Simulated assay, not measured.
Amino acid sequence: MGYFRAIIYALLAISVSTITTNAAGVRPGQIKNLVTFGDSYTDVVNVGDGGVAWPVYAARYAHLDLFPFARSGATCSNNLTFRPFPPVFESQLPDYFSQKQSLRLTPQETIYTLWIGTNDVGANALLTGSDAASIVDVSACMVNWVKVLYESGARNFLFQNMIPLQTVPMYSPNSYPNKFWTDVRNTTEWTVLMTELVLSGNAITRLMLEALAPTLHGAHIGLFDSHALFTDMFNRPSLYLNGTAPLNVTGAVNTCVFELHGTTSDCVLVSGSARDSFLWFDELHPSEQADRIVAREVAASIQGKKNRWTTWLS
């Protein structure tokens, strides 16, 4: 990761808006296999949205074979932001490499996705303090995922950046004690800091990916702007949410208000088609309807269709 740290300070002075690309990305019909890495936003077993995870929908929409390695609770590396869950570098990538030969995936027909960062920048990590890492280190780890897989033979990548986490109930100014955090906190301070961490991390990873892309011969690297997509869903929910209840971007399908420092809670669970009126499933995770939108847009990118949320850097 030293390579990335060396270039980041020189790149930060460059405005992202001045960088353009004419990269075409993957061809229509090229991709047959989808390999996913990340945290609970992507885990297909311990599903964060309370329903079906987006990779299952994306594979269905784009007619792909799915190979899921994302694990709930993960960070990019436990050496940077430790959590007692399987991280990308110390668990998910080794798991993939142990199976790589038996999977027999053709590089040209396979795309690899990574959606990570929510736990890295969150409570019990960068937001509340880490002695081992900064947002630069975490961003470098995320981008290094591309380099490591490329060196193993992978050639097609879709990098999903962090959503506007200050809009999820957990990190909003009006947050409350919940199952993810019951201690005292300054919710306004958390909102401001989370906004800065996400914006900074997304800008750094984009600059690093733009610097890395020309050095990886034959690779196709797409940047999927989850931040912009979720910002649009938050600001214009009627374009995305379609449930039978009033549209809701501040509450959640599964809301649990805990006593401060306590273990008891008051929970409300929305059922049926009304669930699709919510942007969030609980205080931290997108809803299943939001994930259907993610899946739809990711599938379009993988199929080689023009997509307003994806920029191909190579």
Rank of each mutant, 00 (worst) to 15 (best):
M1P: 06
G2W: 11
G2R: 15
F4V: 03
R5Q: 14
I8C: 08
A13Q: 14
I14K: 13
S17T: 06
I19R: 14
N22K: 15
A23C: 08
A24H: 11
R27Y: 00
R27T: 06
G29C: 01
Q30L: 04
T36W: 03
T36E: 01
D39A: 08
Y41G: 10
N46F: 15
G48Q: 02
G51Y: 07
V52P: 10
A62T: 03
F67R: 03
F69R: 05
G73R: 02
G73A: 05
A74C: 09
N79R: 15
T81A: 06
T81R: 12
F85K: 14
P86W: 10
P87D: 06
F89K: 04
L93R: 12
P94I: 10
Y96F: 11
Q99P: 01
Q101W: 07
L103I: 01
L103Y: 07
I111C: 01
T113P: 08
T113H: 07
W115V: 07
I116H: 00
T118P: 09
N119H: 06
A123W: 11
N124H: 13
T128Y: 06
G129L: 03
A132W: 03
A133M: 12
S134E: 02
S134W: 00
I135M: 14
V138K: 02
A140I: 03
C141P: 14
V143P: 10
V146R: 08
G153S: 13
A154F: 12
N156W: 11
N156F: 12
N156T: 11
F157W: 06
F157R: 09
L158S: 04
Q160S: 12
T167F: 13
M170D: 01
M170Q: 10
Y171W: 09
Y171V: 09
N174H: 11
K179C: 09
F180P: 04
W181P: 01
T182W: 01
D183M: 05
T187S: 14
E196A: 12
N202V: 00
I204S: 01
L207K: 04
L209G: 05
E210K: 08
E210C: 04
P214G: 14
H217S: 12
A219E: 03
A219C: 09
H220S: 06
I221P: 02
L223K: 05
H227M: 09
F234S: 11
S238I: 08
L241V: 02
N242C: 11
T244A: 10
T244C: 08
A245V: 05
A245M: 07
P246C: 10
N248M: 10
G251H: 05
G251Q: 05
A252R: 09
V253N: 09
S265D: 14
S265L: 13
L269N: 05
V270H: 03
V270D: 08
D276I: 00
D282I: 15
D282F: 07
L284E: 00
H285I: 04
A290S: 13
I293D: 07
V294S: 07
A295E: 03
I302F: 08
I302E: 09
K306I: 09
K306L: 06
N307K: 04
R308K: 13
R308Y: 03
W309S: 01
T310F: 02
T310C: 02
